[in-house]
Nucleic acid binder design. Sequence first.
DNA 1: GATTATCGGGG
DNA 2: GTGTACGATAATC
Length: 784
Amino acid sequence: MESLIDLDYNSDDLCIYLYLINSIIKEKDFKPYFYVNSTDKEQILEFLKDYEKKHKLDSEISKMIENIETVKKIVFDENYQEKELSKVTVKYPNNVKTVREILMEFERLYEYDIPFVRRYLIDNSVIPTSTWDFENNKKIDNKIPDFKTVSFDIEVYCNKEPNPKKDPIIMASFSSKDFNTVVSTKKFDHEKLEYVKDEKELIKRIIEILKEYDIIYTYNGDNFDFPYLKKRAESFGLELKLGKNDEKIKITKGGMNSKSYIPGRVHIDLYPIARRLLNLTKYRLENVTEALFDVKKVDVGHENIPKMWDNLDETLVEYSHQDAYYTQRIGEQFLPLEIMFSRVVNQSLYDINRMSSSQMVEYLLLKNSYKMGVIAPNRPSGKEYQKRIRSSYEGGYVKEPLKGIHEDIVSMDFLSLYPSIIMSHNLSPETIDCTCCSDEENGENEEILGHKFCKKSIGIIPKTLMDLINRRKKVKKVLREKAEKGEFDEEYQILDYEQRSIKVLANSHYGYLAFPMARWYSRDCAEITTHLGRQYIQKTIEEAENFGFKVIYADTDGFYSKWADDKEKLSKYELLEKTREFLKNINNTLPGEMELEFEGYFKRGIFVTKKKYALIDENEKITVKGLEVVRRDWSNVSKNTQKNVLNALLKEGSVENAKKVIQDTIKELKDGKVNNEDLLIHTQLTKRIEDYKTTAPHVEVAKKILKSGNRVNTGDVISYIITSGNKSISERAEILENAKNYDTNYYIENQILPPVIRLMEALGITKDELKDSKKQYTLHHFLK
DNA sequence: GATTATCGGGG
DNA sequence: GTGTACGATAATC
């Protein structure tokens, strides 16, 4: 009776370790297996023997086989009929790869690429992160176990890109309920400081501290903190034996992103979670902190770290600890939801943390197909994948917006439009144009975009969705009952997280059908889903306009509208009353699961083009969609202008003021009043200078830096200013120190106008009009 | 308009 | 590790 926190195959012990909080269970009985499309056991063995002979192997392959037995399964690509095939069980997980490569030549294989531990969780009922009775193999309760959690963050002394070969780790910050400490290799006067004499001691201390905890939160620790720590540790001859059983940390490099896995503990990297669950334009720690807690975190600014360190500035300790503190808080915020995902999908917390929602859906489907005795379709081949990636189809309906500024806007949207469609029409890769329904039956079957769907049995996608929806309904019923009784206890919170995680999973099924890597991929089902979705939203817009709304803009499953009749000016209260009335009417006509609901009221909004708009609500909260171009490579002058223009439009509702912001900035630029620092454009050198085929400003600047005797490395961010002259833009790019002037015209045309021009054009203001302050400017200039 | 290149998070 | 797993947007053709 203990909580299962993590699982891993231990290659020394040759079995799966089930890590509980205080102990380890060794699972020795579960063996790796896959299926062969053949019932002839002898023939399979024969084929392997032939292979051994041909390659002069001494029965090495046959030795890997533990057992071959005939099983009955429903096979997806054989008309979904039950048929017999062979289950080949091998001795060790890495045997699968060897044996399958050989047998691929023999016959079609199935389920040959499911990682061993994940296979274990698909086939067995044990649920990660829940409290489990291993004797009787059942769940004890729903509670979230009392995990010991800590956040972890390192600081590095460096002036450019951190280089683990030379730049030392100088500090490590930790934050947990009862431990808030910054371990440092320099003595600062700060209450949270713990001094160690050098970097080697620091690394030893980090290991010692992390080993106290079950869950370790980082922010981008997969890609930065752990790989960096490991490299530094190696240079001191230290190993990161962070595992529960002193196993080494496993850092896997997968193309761009790495993963840092600690056996027996859970390393939760909050960066990928924030990207998955929040909808922000930027995902720096400070952005996430602000979005979740409405707190503006003071950022150290990595370029200041060496200075502060050298000057023994103790605010460095405070700032550094702040990062750990907020990482911990973000972790506590997201952990329950991740735990619920882990339980519903039935995969480990570590894996869930790094899965996209489509991957979660796939593992849910694998679990269900296993239960249903269905063999999963294979993942696409490289060729098939390329084909899928290239095939596109019509997406959701997006209405061309009524351009300009609008006031008193209500938005309404469909509650899970696509899941409802998939369920009510039984859309699934195996139900589409099924062969099991006879022609007569199919005669009455409705045809959608030239396809018919099975009437006899429910497809795996709608079935999985229905299970989720029913489970969510049950949970929501309990929640309602508890709410009525005022029982907002721990159980209530857990159930609430459960229904939220189910909602996310349900809403991911449509995306899964169109996910090119999906086993149950179906372009046709995805296309039909959006097709039907377009019908519903268009019909609803029609109804809304008949009722008296004017629909300003619509996208896929929702729309923004105002009251149409300008003579009949409604108060906010009246508008919301009308909205309620309309929703009640429309929801009576919609089928089963489908429901249109009120989403929000906005006092003002500006609509530019499809997918590009901004709104402000009653609390002055601004929502911007598709308009933001604020990336780190843009200059400050550009970012600020955009921000000020949006404020003028939304907060003041003044086109004139917005116009003035732009014209003033242009004036300042022409007048040479803009600070050179605000003109810096930042671009990263992503490859070696000699590898660039095209000329780009930052590459040219890098060459100049090199010529002046300084070093430039791949990964460095080059900051430059475009100076005036007649040569090409690239040749005129200079670093701050060498920039004697700047190209006014370049900044107006390429930095000031692009982010705001579409905004202003939607309001009927032309580019020329914005730039035409030139005459006024010269006049002013000379008058002054 | 379609294809290709770049960036993100961390310091 | 029984894993070939990004996705949005700007620049360029």
